[in-house]
């Protein structure tokens, strides 16, 4: 029998988070969102429903959006993770164009869902740079806003899409 010690339960992971290489021993049952918040202090990523419904914990794993409460930290071993904190160079006071659009269009009320909304919007626009309003609503279906501020959220994403186009032209 393998002895049931803490050491036995720990697994080493190495990954890149918001541009920095990190390495830790974690319990296999630790969720990626817990790892980001509790081990790395990246509390910009929030836990909303804790049932993989609301999307507040959305981050990018190897470039695509995932719900970080529904991924184990050990599954992210060897991967690249981007959180809301690494989207733009915050130290330089910069905002990502999608963050800027949410500010411009008042795409939030209480703001709790906003980190996840923005991370999903960035993913959506990467796949479809000029979405229709319906495509935005469908693409954001995994993110819930309990203030029901959807109107301005959709407006923000469409605004960001326009900006992206403007930048390209």
């Amino acid at each position: 029998m393998t002895p049931l010690t803490l050491e036995w339960l720990m697994t080493k992971i190495e990954l890149t988070v918001d541009g920095a290489a990190v390495s830790d021993d974690v319990e296999p049952r630790m969720l990626l969102v817990q790892y980001l918040r509790e081990k790395l202090g990246k509390t910009g990523t929030v836990i909303g429903c804790d049932t993989s419904n609301c999307g507040a914990c959305t981050v990018h794993l190897n470039g695509t959006s995932v719900k970080s409460c529904n991924v184990l930290a050990v599954q992210a071993n060897g991967s690249t993770v981007t959180t809301i904190e690494g989207l733009a160079d915050a130290a330089e006071g910069e905002l990502h164009p999608v963050q800027e659009a949410f500010r411009e269009c008042h795409g939030l009320q209480c703001g709790f869902c906003t980190p996840g909304m923005i991370m999903q919007a960035v993913d959506l626009l990467a796949e479809n740079p000029s979405p229709t309003e319906e495509e935005v609503r469908l693409g954001m279906e995994g993110n819930l806003c309990r203030c029901t501020g959807y109107h301005n959220i959709v407006k923000s994403v469409l605004h960001a899409a326009g900006q992206t186009e403007g930048a390209k032209a």
Partner: peptide, 9 residues
């Protein structure tokens, strides 16, 4: 299936 984030995983 579910939503975009779930379909990615």
């Amino acid at each position: 299936v579910a939503d975009s984030q779930i379909r990615h995983r």
